[in-house]
Amino acid sequence: MKLKLALAQINTKLGVVESNLEKHLAQIEKASKEKADLVVFPELSLTGYSLQDLAPTVAHRAVPEDLVFKRLLDASQDIDVVVGFVEEDLRNRFFISSAYLSRGEVSHVHRKVYLPTYGLFDEGRFFAWGDTTAAFNTRFGRVGILICEDFWHVSPPYLLWLDGADIFLFVSASPGRGLTSAPQLSTAQWVESINRAYASIFTSFVVHCNRVGYEDGLHFSGGSTVFGPDGDLLAKAPYEDESLTFCDLDLNQLHRSRSRLPLLRDERTALTQRELNRILNRDGSSSGR
């Protein structure tokens, strides 16, 4: 089975949902014309990243009654769509979320579980923490979504793997930083190396869609990637520039890679659970929160 994927590596207008929505619809149409099955947008693709006090004013709910989502759901009849947005729940908590839309329905919403609140980041000040990392079924098999800092931690990808995800959809709006003599920023190098590592050790497809553009002095470097179950780079979007990058995923590669390297078969989840319980229950544990 093949899946034609489109990475919509876009720039956004900060806090202007209508304008960003139009860009989404145009990209979806373009991807659809190219016969893509799935188009992935970056973190907070409907709103921009550094929202601060704008966060509550740009929030939406992934329901058909929401005027923004209605148009996105209408656009998802022929092509599945992953879109990033500020989600307001029924009790008025605001999350950094990504929704998977398919055939006019919301298949899944992931709420970011790790909100970086250090250095240049201040997400914990403005957003609520998501509480689950669940894989979900799509017409291409089982998929998991994580948002930026979620996959800087090793546990959410691991949990998704055990929950059945064979395709990891990672989205980010990662401010580039760490200029050295190397031809890439250190953050770009880091993200590429961990995504390749996840693809290899989980023998899975790892898709990463990062945004481009600037917000004040912050810059988002793009360079979105797709890695296959052998850790091979299957596609890479340019740095700095907007692009719609296509990649054919041969899902049969999962069979071949896992025949060669049965890491999933041999994963000792009961041992992991037992040891985690021991470590977290131990008095004076230094690891646990």
Binding site: G176, L179, T180, S181, P183, L185, Y214, D216, H219, E240
Partner: peptide
């Protein structure tokens, strides 16, 4: 030492954007 091509690209984009 910095990569001067990368610095130029990022800074030029910043000037243009701002």
């Amino acid at each position: 030492d910095i990569n001067t091509d990368l610095a130029t690209e990022i800074i030029s984009g910043f000037i243009h954007s701002e």
